[in-house]
Each structure stands twice: as structure tokens, then as C-alpha cells.
Simulated assay, not measured.
Amino acid sequence: MKELFHNISQCTICKAHLPLGPRPVVTAHINSKIIIIGQAPGTKVHESGIPWDDQSGKKLRQWLNVTDEQFYNTQNFAIMPMGFCYPGKAKTGDLPPRPECAPQWHDQLLDKMPKVELIILIGAHAQKYYLKDKAKRTLTETVGDYKGYLPKYFPIPHPSPTNRFWRSKNPWFEELVVSELQKKVKELILKVV
């Protein structure tokens, strides 16, 4: 794992496309139980080097019902975005994660984490990549059918403040799905291995 992280830290595969340059943000441990796969770091996370160190991260920890200490314990959660570096700004929000990253690094990381029991797929990019043809037509449909992807995957929307509109249109997510996610997470992080 140490050598793999060293190689990731030196990665420049998409350097020419990164407005702030490469700064891979990824965490994992050989004993990680849950993997969180989101999009890519934003500017705040790029600066701090701490994954989910922003408003989206606060909302995500609320949804998971975990403390910062539990969240950043890599034996509980590995954090492996679709793109490890900040991809740049789009008209609304950030650009999509760079397509080179996941094929280059994800399988290598997954191979080093044999104890993973749940992969939380945050947003359409992660869901399409991992669920392939099992992903529904829209993120809303995929998240609505979350039970169909268990026990391995749990698809959720992105917790970004820019996603407030989706959440207000789909109150069932926070009313029904979040409690199921919290139960699953609690069961796994309290599990004695």
C-alpha cells in the first residue's frame, strides 16, 4: 500500500488538464471496511489535502451519522474519488473528474483492500462507472433503487450545497434512504473483525 500511495502522489497522467496542477487526494487502509467514491476534490480540498474538508463533507458526515474522527479513520472509510485531483471550474460547479484517473488507480487500490464490505457511490460519475448497465436512466432512479445494489454498492446523490434543488425535489432521499445508509454504516464500523 505504501508503494502504491507513493506512485499515486507522483502521478502526472493528466497534469496538462489540471488548472491548479496535480495534488492527488485519496485515503485508504488495508483494513478499510467502506469505500466512498465521489467525483473529485474541490478547490478547498485541493488546498488542504483533506478529503471532504468542505460543506459537502459536513453534509456527507451528517448523512452517514459519523463523527469527523470516525470518518477520517481509514480503517472505517477509504476515500477514493473518480478523479484524485481538482479538475477545474465549469459554468455551474466543477468540471467532471478526469477520465484517466479511475482506470489508472482504482483497481490497484481495490486489490489492496480485501475487507471492504460496502462501496458508497456518490453522484452520477461514480454510479455510471461502477454500476455500468445496471445504473438506471437517471441518478434519481438509481438512488431510488438503492436496495437493488446492496450489499456491495449504495448509490447516493452528491451532498454539495449546489444540489439543494435536487434534495428539495426528492425529500424521500433524506426521509427514507439516509436512515438506511446510517444503519448500514453503523453496522459496519462497529463490527469487530
Rank of each mutant, 00 (worst) to 15 (best):
T74N: 05
T67V: 02
P87E: 01
Q70E: 15
C101F: 07
M113T: 10
K115M: 15
M82E: 04
M80Y: 07
L110V: 07
Q108G: 10
D107P: 00
P103I: 02
I119H: 09
E69S: 13
P87H: 01
P97A: 11
F71E: 05
I79F: 04
L95E: 11
P97C: 09
G88C: 00
G88R: 02
I79E: 01
Q108T: 07
E100Y: 03
A78Y: 14
K89F: 06
M82R: 05
F84W: 11
Y72N: 08
C101D: 10
P87L: 00
Q104V: 06
G88Q: 00
Y72I: 06
W105G: 10
A102W: 03
C85P: 06
Q127A: 10
D94I: 02
L121Y: 10
N76L: 03
T92P: 07
A102S: 07
K91Q: 12
C101T: 09
H106P: 06
F84A: 08
Q108E: 14
Y86I: 00
Q70H: 14
A124Q: 12
T67P: 00
P87F: 00
T92F: 12
M82C: 06
C101I: 05
E117C: 14
A126Y: 01
P96W: 02
M82Q: 13
F84V: 09
F71M: 01
T74S: 14
I120Y: 15
V116C: 12
K91L: 12
A90W: 03
I79N: 11
Y86V: 01
M113V: 09
M82I: 11
F84C: 05
L95Y: 00
T92G: 09
K112V: 08
G93Q: 03
I119C: 13
P81W: 04
L118S: 11
Q104M: 12
N76Q: 04
P96M: 04
I119F: 08
C85H: 03
A78N: 12
Q127H: 03
G83C: 03
D68Y: 10
Q75G: 02
I79Y: 02
K91E: 15
P103L: 09
M82T: 06
Q75S: 09
T67C: 05
P87M: 04
H125D: 14
F71S: 02
P81C: 05
L109A: 11
D68A: 13
G93E: 06
K89C: 05
K112M: 14
I122T: 12
D94W: 00
L109E: 08
F77H: 13
M80W: 12
T92N: 13
A126F: 01
M113P: 07
F71D: 05
V116Y: 14
G88T: 00
I120H: 11
E117P: 12
N76W: 02
K112A: 13
P114M: 03
L121Q: 09
D68I: 11
L118Y: 11
A78D: 15
A102T: 12
P99R: 02
Y86M: 04
P99N: 04
T67W: 04
G93M: 03
P96R: 10
